[in-house]
Design a protein around this nucleic acid. Structure first.
Length: 437
RNA sequence: CGGGGCGUAGCGCAGCCUGGUAGCGCACCUGCUUUGGGAGCAGGAGGCCCCCGGUUCAAAUCCGGGCGCCCCGACCA
């Protein structure tokens, strides 16, 4: 993509309303534009990141055996009356009427809808387990939206729903999501710590919040330091095998948010305790037969007896992750994208657009990167070097390939790694080899 | 939902108290000079001053009512 033609309205000054760093940087980088309180348009650069994150979530869900479907944003109130939540949910639910005066709502979540789908089609225990998910926009009419996309009213969320015949099956489903979540966040370059969360009316240990560590996070996190070193990407996961060991490795070590942490009874010796700040980006939850009973989602067991299915739901805040990743990865100059979610891998800077040698070398590098299917944003604008460097640092692409008259005279270009700031002078060919290899 | 603040050019703001030609910086357009870390000079374009009503010869400014947005707290992916 040529920057001269790309819609990327960067700002030198910070809009007044943006208080936290991710919101400020997203506004300045031209990723989003606020439409109303807590509601945002995603401009091309921001949209690319959103899609990258969504795709990682999707791949890991699929790998865990979940199946993607898509449920609507607008739901009928009738289903919610069945579960009893239409009255229960309160002001956070955006309620609307259609032209016939029927009560509708913009879904804040999808348990009712997915349960309705399930009960209509699944009648036998032989068809279990099922693990369904979708990635869809939700709306919760927060009293006070803030922090940009981190706490919007409209937000993109991945939510999965598991259906099992018995508790043991529900636990297997839960474990699948547990591991899939670890992998999902790790692939985005995040340190995600699962924390035992309020388990609701059912009790037990099957509710975890996933908190990623970020210096500007809101939640205080206390955990054993070994949790930070665990690697979940290095080994293949057999989702049909026994996941208890993998899950146990993570849950055996102490991790608690501030609400649950009591320094007096903390089992971790001080020298092994990490105290950090974090942001909640995922939540997995087993809730048993809460909806299957109220909504009559029943399958026939081996003796034809009707059995309400055991369910769980599993959410990831996809749009929140865009902000959360920035909170976890930025510096004074701007965003530092992990390569897996970066809107482009390489920013190609032509330091002197309009000069024949620079244009020729830059155009050629651009063509070669495109041919190699490397995502590249080519700054071919006729702007000053400083402005180009500043914009490129701001939008945080992992690599900058800098082509200028000074280097070309010596037969070299510069390759700068955004994260470390390290620059190397290389021949064009070896720089390209590094980026395409 | 309690408390506070703010709506003036795309963005950041001044002007409002004390009514009288709507301003500054950045961004934008033209030209010249400049050219490896957000250039300089000159010229230019861009405003229902949030909306409605009131007071007044005259309202961005004073008064009343609405709407929007933000911040702090209680609550959430």
């Amino acid at each position: 993509m040529r920057l001269s033609r790309y819609f990327m309205p960067t700002l030198k000054e910070t809009p007044a309303e943006a208080r936290i760093v991710s919101h400020r940087l997203m506004m300045r980088a031209g990723m989003i534009r606020q439409a109303s309180a807590g509601i945002y348009s995603w401009l091309p650069l921001g949209f690319r990141v959103l899609k990258k994150i969504e795709q990682i979530v999707r791949e890991e869900q699929d790998a865990a055996g979940a199946q993607e479907l898509l449920m609507p944003t607008i739901q009928s109130a009738d289903l919610w009356r069945e579960s009893g939540r239409y009255e229960e949910y309160g002001e956070e639910m955006l309620r609307i009427k259609d032209r016939h005066g029927r009560d509708m709502l913009y879904g804040p979540t999808n348990e009712e809808l997915v349960t309705d789908i399930f009960r209509a089609h699944v009648k036998s225990y032989r068809d279990l387990p099922q693990l369904l998910y979708h990635i869809q926009w939700k709306f919760r009419d927060e009293v006070r939206p803030r922090f940009g996309v981190m706490r919007g009213r409209e937000f993109l969320m991945k939510d999965s729903y598991s259906f099992d015949f018995d508790f043991a099956g529900a636990r297997r489903s839960y474990n699948k999501m547990f591991v899939a979540y670890l992998r999902t966040f790790a692939r985005m370059g995040l340190k995600a710590i699962p924390m035992l969360a309020e388990s609701g009316p059912i009790g037990g240990d099957m509710s975890h919040e996933f908190v990623i560590l970020a210096p500007t996070g809101e939640t205080e996190v206390h955990c054993h330091r070994d949790l930070l070193d665990f690697d979940v990407l290095g080994s293949e996961i057999d989702y049909d095998g026994d996941l208890e060991r993998v899950v146990g490795r993570w849950t055996d070590l102490y991790a608690a948010t501030d609400k649950k942490h009591d320094p007096a009874s903390c089992p971790v010796p001080p020298d092994q305790l990490v105290e950090a700040l974090g942001i909640e980006v995922g939540h997995i939850f087993y809730f048993g037969t809460k909806y299957s009973k109220s909504m009559d989602a029943v399958v026939a067991g081996p003796n034809s007896e009707p059995v309400p299915v055991e369910m769980g739901s599993y959410g990831i805040g996809v749009s929140r992750l865009v902000g959360a990743i920035i909170e976890a990865s930025h510096d004074e100059a701007g965003i530092i994208w992990p390569e897996s979610v970066a809107p482009f891998k390489v920013g190609l800077i032509n330091l002197k657009a309009g000069e024949a040698a620079c244009d020729r070398a830059s155009d050629e590098a651009y063509a070669k990167l495109n041919d190699a299917r490397v995502e590249v944003l080519y700054d071919d604008r006729e702007a000053r070097a400083g402005a180009k460097f500043a914009d490129m640092d701001l939008i945080g692409l992992p690599w900058q390939l800098i082509v200028g008259p000074r280097g070309l005279a010596a037969g070299v270009v510069e390759l700068k790694e955004r994260a470390s700031g390290e620059r190397q002078e290389l021949s064009i060919d070896s720089a390209l080899a590094r980026l395409t290899g």
